[in-house]
Amino acid sequence: MKFELKNSLAPLSALSKIFEHPQTLCYPEVKSETVSGYRGFHINDLSTCIGCANCQDVCMNEAIDMIAIDKDKNPKNNSGCIPRIDYGRCCWCSLCTDVCPPDSLKLESECIWADDDANRFLYQPKDKPC
């Protein structure tokens, strides 16, 4: 076995890194750019949601409940129900948004939610036009 002096000294070149600015972000102060199309939390445009429960059918985790809404925003909503997602079960595969006939259910870039009670993770998608 031969160990060259060069191989023993070359690793020291890594120290030049201290003259560079650190690459990590100081998280709470600096946030990374949000990406359009990120699979984050759900949003649902209630003015177009037809309450068809396709999203509930396709969800393999049985994470979606269809719950009644008080007032109908959309006359085409035949069932008067909108989806609510159990974020303890959701795997953010976005199949529910793929099968949504009016494309009202979408995922947004927002993706941070901390809570100390696991039973609170029933998420009512925000009503946002997409």
Partner: peptide, 19 residues
């Protein structure tokens, strides 16, 4: 190239990994 210098060609890593 930087990884080569710091890791793959690093004599101390060679000493640990060879054989």
């Amino acid at each position: 190239d930087a990884y080569d210098r710091l890791f793959f060609d690093n004599a101390s890593f060679q000493k640990r990994a060879i054989g």
